Computed example of a mutant assay.
Amino acid sequence: MGGAKPGADRYGRDMIARELLATAPVPGGEELRLFRRGGDYTIALGGNELMSSRMSGSEVALADMSCDRLQGGAAPYLLIGGYGMGFTLRAALARLGPDARIMVAELVPDIIDWARGPMAALAAGALDDPRVELRITDVSGVIGGAVGAFDAILLDVDNGPDGLTRESNDRIYSAAGLDRARRALRPGGILANWSAHPDARFARRLRDAGFAVEEVAVRARSNGKGARHIIWFARAA
Rank of each mutant, 00 (worst) to 15 (best):
R207W: 00
A192Y: 02
S195D: 05
I172D: 05
E215W: 02
F211N: 09
I172N: 06
I190P: 00
A200T: 13
I190F: 05
A175V: 09
G188I: 11
R186S: 01
D208H: 09
L185H: 08
L206N: 05
R180Y: 03
S168I: 12
A181T: 04
A176T: 15
P198R: 01
S168V: 14
Y173M: 12
H197I: 02
F211C: 08
R207A: 15
Y173R: 10
A200W: 00
N169R: 04
D170E: 12
L191G: 03
R205D: 07
L178K: 11
L191M: 05
R205A: 12
V213W: 09
L191H: 05
L178I: 08
D170S: 12
D199Q: 08
R182T: 10
R207T: 15
D170L: 14
I190M: 10
A200D: 15
W194K: 04
D208Q: 11
L206D: 08
V216N: 00
A209P: 01
A176K: 15
Y173K: 07
R205M: 06
F202Y: 15
S195N: 06
A200P: 10
S168T: 14
D208S: 12
D170W: 06
P187H: 08
A175C: 02
R183T: 13
R182E: 01
R183G: 00
N193C: 14
H197Q: 10
G177Q: 07
A192Q: 01
G188T: 10
R171K: 10
N169K: 06
I172M: 14
A175E: 15
V216T: 11
R171F: 13
R205E: 09
S195E: 04
Y173A: 08
S174W: 02
R204F: 01
E215G: 01
S195C: 06
A209K: 05
E215A: 07
I190H: 02
H197E: 12
N169S: 13
I190E: 03
L185R: 06
N193A: 13
G210F: 10
E214P: 03
E215I: 09
R201A: 15
G188V: 09
I172T: 11
A181D: 03
L178R: 13
R204S: 13
G210Q: 10
D208N: 11
R171M: 11
D179E: 13
F211S: 07
G189L: 03
R171G: 04
L185D: 04
Y173I: 09
H197P: 03
R186G: 01
A175G: 08
A217F: 15
G188M: 01
G189R: 05
R180F: 05
